[in-house]
Design a protein around this nucleic acid. Structure first.
Lengths: 110, 110
DNA sequence: TCGATATTTCATGATTTATGGATATGAATC
DNA sequence: GATTCATATCCATAAATCATGAAATATCGA
């Protein structure tokens, strides 16, 4: 994760619809959700949602798999973990005893 | 941490100068840095930096203490911890064995 | 009180971003 | 191959955001 990736990710999450999408997908876990379901759940028009999903995907926060006519979207745990690690990098001057446990613990394998 | 606070925090971090400031202050830890030092370190004009510091402070990500003519800024670990917890809330449908350790570990006391 | 220093506030113009309608693509079904 | 469904893309417009210069505020020392 470098600065630009982190910026993309944070900017992507700094918008209401996209933050809601991300949290919805985090909650959905490995089941994921179809694009249409997401749009309906959040009451957002299809084209707007598509654009927002694209922003999140480009930022590495979600990914999708095609299922016939549908696209199923998932939260990308690797992406969010990398972002969190970047945010806390060199925490407290890099003192490892204080902060390394935080980063290690982000190895959540949802 | 509610949705609006989280949006403020993410939008605040989704801008290059502000993300750099935040990481600088995370690195500085309990020592913090003067506003002027921060502006100089990142080569940003003082009024621009002041505006950006205000955004971060309003978002609860940094805080300051006056020291004579200077303001010393610090990363607000409570703020960032709350944000990270909000992002991962109800991860995997709230399955606690998978994801609770991540949230607990964010109790880093820098 | 006066001047110097550190920082913030305000107003503005320029750039970026979000949204909605229309349209296009891609996959399944008939 | 025509139709239909799910989703993506294009384009124009409205809204939000950003950096900047000028002015204001707060603190310190003489």
């Amino acid at each position: 994760m470098d600065m630009n990736q982190a910026l993309d990710a944070l900017a992507a999450l700094g918008q209401k619809t996209r933050l809601e999408v991300f949290r919805l997908l985090v909650k959905a876990g490995t089941d994921g959700m179809h694009a249409g379901e997401i749009a309906e759940a959040l009451n957002v028009r299809q084209n707007t949602m598509s654009a927002n999903l694209a922003v999140l995907a480009r930022a590495g926060l979600i990914r999708n798999e095609r299922e016939g006519r549908n696209l199923r979207y998932f939260a990308d745990m690797d992406g969010i973990r990398g972002l969190l690690a970047f945010l806390m990098e060199d925490c407290c001057g890099g003192n490892p005893t204080l902060c390394q446990p935080v980063l290690d613990a982000l190895a959540c394998e949802c």
